[in-house]
């Protein structure tokens, strides 16, 4: 049958020829308006814009609303929704087995700061190359709204119960323990979160991003410090974060007087436009001091809080072969007969 070829409108594709839909996942089953869905969208955008090959990504999670979300992005990446609070262990094993994977872990505040705090702190110590995102709403959504360990002192549940315990600041913990890329953001701040995520994809160490993500069903009311309105009113950005991938020249937004430029492992650049403070994200003490100060003021400090592009990561420290351990051929993993003979001789 003869047809006339009509040129289709040019599809938007990235540098590896994939379109945004190639990074989509299943339909979200989370509540409409949930902050987690916005985070999923930013992950999709970041991976698309960075030209990440989906097959190289391993999506990892524990249990909770947050941990369901890996099913809603990067549908052609492997995923492992494991057990509550134990995603760090799964991520560690995954990367040990295949060092070429990009491990993208999504956790929640309960999954991280309550049941998972043990694995969380040890993950931070190891500086395993992975991205660890906390979708932080200060409550347990899936079991109907109980407080988590990141709920602020004095914040109120829908039922009127007031939290009388101080919160765990996951960013401060991560910085103290050895994570090398630590940031805080807000699920509603598209621009900042996207820049932080793109930077994260260029980093080779533990990235820890605490993203305040209001729970529209149980924790988005007056009295909650993790509601949309509270965060919007109390967000204190450290500076404006822009990101230039390694495959682009730095031309945009470049104003040397007010911008700090940081080069990441893969050659990408993070541009930090200073606002009111003269902030150096490589200074651990400054980061911790600022976090404490803004916490005391009731502010949520957002942006890239800390970066150490020098510290060796866990895989480098283990001196593992370049080829993934998972795919080593038998000849490289089973020593020859004479090796066994040698040992047997020694044991006689």
């Amino acid at each position: 049958m003869a047809t006339t070829t009509v040129p289709s409108p040019r599809k938007k594709v990235n540098r590896i020829g994939l379109g945004p839909s190639d990074y989509k996942g299943g339909r979200s089953t989370l509540c409409a308006g949930c902050g987690h869905n916005s985070i999923s969208e930013r992950i999709i955008e970041a991976c698309f814009e960075m030209g990440i090959e989906p097959y190289r990504v391993a999506k990892l999670s524990g249990i909770g609303c947050s941990s369901k979300s890996p099913a809603y992005f990067l549908g052609s990446s492997h995923g492992f929704n494991s057990v509550h609070g134990r995603m760090p262990a799964i991520a560690t094993g995954t990367i040990l087995a295949n060092r070429n994977l990009i491990a993208l872990g999504v956790s929640g505040d309960g999954d991280t700061a309550s049941i998972g705090i043990g694995q969380f702190v040890h993950l931070m110590r190891r500086n395993l190359p992975m991205i660890y995102i906390i979708e932080d709403n200060g409550c347990y959504g899936l079991t109907k709204g109980q407080f988590s360990a990141t709920a602020d002192l004095g914040s109120k549940l829908k039922t009127g119960v007031i939290n009388d315990l101080p919160p765990i600041d996951t960013c401060a913990l991560a910085i103290m323990l050895g994570a090398t890329y630590v940031g805080r953001s807000f699920s509603g701040d598209k621009r900042q979160l996207l820049a932080l995520l793109k930077g994260a994809l260029g980093h080779r160490g533990t990235v820890m991003l605490d993203v305040i993500s209001p729970c529209v069903t149980f924790n988005d009311h007056e009295g909650s410090t993790k509601s949309y309105s509270y965060v919007q009113d109390h967000d204190a950005p450290l500076g404006e974060v822009s990101f230039v991938p390694f495959f682009e020249d730095i031309t945009v937004d470049y104003d040397p007087g007010t911008t700090t430029e940081i080069r990441l492992h893969d050659g990408s650049h993070l541009l930090l436009k200073k606002l009111d403070v003269d902030y150096d994200p490589t200074n651990k003490m400054d980061a911790l001091r600022l976090l404490t100060e803004s916490h005391d003021k009731g502010e949520i400090l957002t942006g890239l809080l800390y970066l150490d592009a020098e510290r060796p990561n866990f895989i480098d420290m283990l001196n593992i072969v370049d080829v993934p351990l998972a795919t080593l051929p038998e000849s490289m993993v089973r020593p020859p007969r004479q090796a066994l003979d040698e040992i047997m001789e020694e044991l006689k």
């Binding site: 057990v83 087995a97 994977l101 998972a326």
Partner: peptide, 20 residues
């Protein structure tokens, strides 16, 4: 690992990703 939970968790993560 930091405890047995992590020890088996890492081993399962590795097994899933293809390690022995």
């Amino acid at each position: 690992a930091e405890d047995e939970l992590a020890a088996i968790g890492m081993a399962i993560g590795a097994g899933w990703a293809g390690a022995r």
